[in-house]
């Protein structure tokens, strides 16, 4: 789309006709891209109120009648209420802790000069690279040793460790760019180190923190591999495992999968809408520079 807008703007003296064309073209491209991103999701939404039998007959038909009961079946009969609560508990807990711990570490690494700074940074960061499929078994052993296997607390800890390197990496990069003058001034005003972190770094770093929050939340909300291996108790399952239950060995219950996905994703979208508004407003209002 920028290509078209470039066309429109490159020559300000151009006749209105090409500009109109460029405008139309831009709208067309933006419209097409929107269909491309939103289309599959809306398609999935229609499937969530259709039965699998209906879907198999025609994948693109409009729901008729609307099978709202699929949501009830998922929520009540298939225990999604429990899964939802478990997911919320684990993911919100993990995201809160990892953001705080990660931000503290990122701040120390970005701000202070001390021996081993870059080494610690490299060590923390490098763990982002290890394929989780391979550390899975050692991790499992550790959780068993500490009696955290098959517990939501254990899963939360694993999730914290999973997202920690990414959080440190993103935040360190941003914190390092906060002008040093701010800190010098704060010091002179008598702020302690912890206060500086709380009253300067966290508020100013909000855009970056919000970004990591969003990313961590989404990745953990959808996490599957660790959830399936570390939790076997049906009462402790999380949403992705709940959805998985509809993907049978022989028979994929597409309608129920779609309903399950809607239950898991709609709250996230609403949270994102709310959050991103705040985020953008925060960024435009209190911009650092």
């Amino acid at each position: 789309m920028a290509f078209f807008s470039m066309l429109g703007a490159r020559d300000p003296g151009a006749t209105p006709l090409p500009r109109l064309f460029a405008r139309g073209g831009l709208a067309l491209v933006i419209g097409a891209y929107t269909i491309y991103t939103l289309g599959p999701f809306l398609w999935l939404a229609t499937m969530s109120v259709r039965t699998t039998g209906e879907i198999s007959l025609d994948h693109y038909a409009w729901p008729s009648p609307f099978h709202w009961e699929q949501f009830r079946i998922a929520w009540v009969d298939s225990n999604f209420a429990t899964y939802f609560w478990n997911s919320t508990l684990v993911v919100v807990g993990a995201v809160a802790v990892v953001t705080l711990v990660g931000a503290a570490a990122a701040h120390a690494l970005a701000r202070y000069r001390f021996k081993g700074n870059r080494l610690i940074y490299a060590v923390l960061f490098s763990s982002i690279i290890f394929p989780p499929q391979i550390t899975l078994i050692s991790l499992y052993q550790i959780l068993v040793d500490y009696n955290l296997y098959n517990s939501l607390l254990g899963l939360t800890l694993v999730y914290i460790s999973l997202q920690l390197p990414l959080t440190v990496y993103l935040l360190e990069g941003f914190f390092a760019r906060i002008p040093q003058d701010l800190f010098d001034a704060a010091k002179m005003d008598g702020y302690g180190d912890i206060e500086i972190f709380r009253r300067i770094v966290l508020p100013i770093g909000m855009p970056a923190i919000a970004t990591t929050l969003i990313l961590n939340f989404i990745q953990l909300w959808n996490e599957f591999l660790f959830a399936v291996v570390l939790i076997t108790d049906p009462d402790k399952r999380t949403l992705p495992i709940g959805i998985r239950a509809f993907m049978g060995d022989h028979f994929q219950d597409i309608g129920m999968i779609a309903a399950g996905v809607m239950i898991s994703v709609v709250p996230v979208i609403l949270a994102y809408i709310f959050f991103s508004e705040k985020l953008i407003r925060g960024m435009t209002a209190g911009a650092v520079k």
Partner: peptide, 23 residues
Amino acid sequence: LSFIPKADIYTQAKSAVRTGQAP
């Protein structure tokens, strides 16, 4: 008694048997 999809049983059991946690 738990009913679990086959692929998940295998993934879980492969980790669980090593640590004495398998059913």
